[in-house]
Amino acid sequence: MNNNTNKPTKSKQQHNFWTHLAISLTIVGGMLATNFSSKAAESFSVEVIGNGKPVLMIPGLMSDARVWRPTAEALAGQYQLHLISIAGFAGKPAIQGELLPTVKQQLLQYIDQQQLQQPAVIGHSLGAFMAFNLASTAPDKIGTVIAVDGLPYLAPVFTRTNDTTVAMMQGQAGYLRMQYQQMTSEQLKAMTAQGLLIQATSATHQQQVLDMAAASVPKAAGQAIYELLTTDLRPKVHNITSKVLLIGASGAMANEADRRAATTLYQQQIASIANATLEFNHQARHFIMLDQPDWLTARIASALKD
């Protein structure tokens, strides 16, 4: 395995991977579709490019469709890509109340109203969680699932064990939501800046991640974090009947022990899915589509064809 983490100093290499990933996942998931009412789509907007078999592409926390556009453009000759941007993230207006349950419900409505036949779902981070959520809730409506560095349950990233339960995390989740509700946009930007080293390798891509976070609504980010920490999909993912590819990023991991621990944790979360595969990219950091775009596009294209 490749141990090149592109860290600036040896001391930086020793930073604990799990601490960084917790920061990453906590502070960070063509034309407009014309037949979907604005009321029904209040929790997200859609950009559609390409022609062919439908594919939904969902970004992560405080990201929007821009992270997926280059990948979508590479696939547009064979697929119809529906690029999702979630309310409250990267300059999109926020909604009141629950966020992720509303997104799930309205995405399923979108699939029905657009008459999409078992679309594949590709999600990054929070978007990967949404992909697992859609496929376990409505397995007959969802095709191939490609989850990019995201899990059915986030909390074990903090605790380093899949024994973690929602009950254990309830207090911490509530505290984080309250903290984000009181945060200004500048404070959100400053907090995001602390974790940029594990988001992406290049300064340009790190700035892209920071700009999207700076344009996000802190309250929306806090609500999403609360819901990620208090929603455990592991008891439901056995319902998934389609093929699942989970891709992890280990480029920010300091050593082989961290890579083994992450592999075990990720594998355990998808163990009950009948047709699931786990693969890691050992050079890319959390935003794999920014760090290793050609590699990721090739893996996605292969998974969609299989």
Rank of each mutant, 00 (worst) to 15 (best):
Q14L: 13
Q14G: 04
Q14P: 01
Q14H: 02
H15C: 04
N16P: 01
N16K: 11
N16C: 14
F17R: 07
F17W: 11
T19E: 14
T19G: 07
H20K: 09
H20R: 08
H20V: 08
A22D: 12
A22S: 14
I23S: 12
I23E: 12
I23R: 11
S24P: 04
S24R: 05
I27M: 10
I27H: 13
V28E: 03
V28I: 00
V28R: 07
G30W: 08
L32Q: 11
L32Y: 02
L32A: 13
A33L: 12
A33T: 06
A33E: 11
T34P: 03
T34H: 06
F36G: 02
F36A: 08
S37D: 15
S38Y: 06
S38E: 13
K39W: 07
K39R: 08
A40Q: 13
E42I: 05
E42G: 00
S43V: 06
S43K: 07
F44Y: 15
S45Q: 15
S45W: 02
V46S: 11
V46N: 02
V46H: 03
V48I: 14
G50W: 07
G50C: 09
N51A: 11
N51P: 00
N51Q: 13
N51R: 10
K53M: 05
K53S: 13
K53Q: 12
V55H: 03
V55L: 06
V55P: 05
M57I: 07
M57A: 12
I58M: 04
P59M: 01
P59K: 02
P59T: 03
G60P: 00
G60R: 01
L61E: 02
M62K: 01
M62G: 05
M62R: 04
M62W: 01
M62H: 01
S63N: 02
S63I: 03
D64C: 10
A65T: 00
A65M: 07
A65P: 00
A65Q: 13
R66A: 14
V67W: 03
V67C: 07
W68H: 15
W68I: 02
R69N: 09
R69E: 13
R69F: 05
R69L: 15
R69V: 14
P70Y: 06
P70C: 09
P70M: 13
A72Y: 04
A72C: 11
A72M: 03
E73T: 12
E73D: 12
L75C: 06
A76D: 05
Q78L: 13
Q78E: 15
Q78F: 02
Y79E: 08
Y79D: 03
Q80C: 07
L81N: 15
L81S: 12
H82K: 03
H82E: 01
L83T: 03
L83R: 04
I84N: 06
I84M: 06
S85N: 05
S85D: 10
G88P: 06
F89S: 13
F89V: 00
A90N: 02
A90T: 05
A90C: 05
G91C: 11
G91W: 06
K92M: 14
K92E: 12
P93M: 04
A94S: 15
Q96W: 00
Q96G: 10
Q96K: 14
G97P: 08
G97R: 07
G97E: 09
E98H: 11
E98V: 09
L99I: 14
L99S: 10
L99C: 09
L99F: 03
L100D: 01
L100K: 04
T102P: 01
T102V: 13
Q105E: 13
Q106S: 15
Q106C: 10
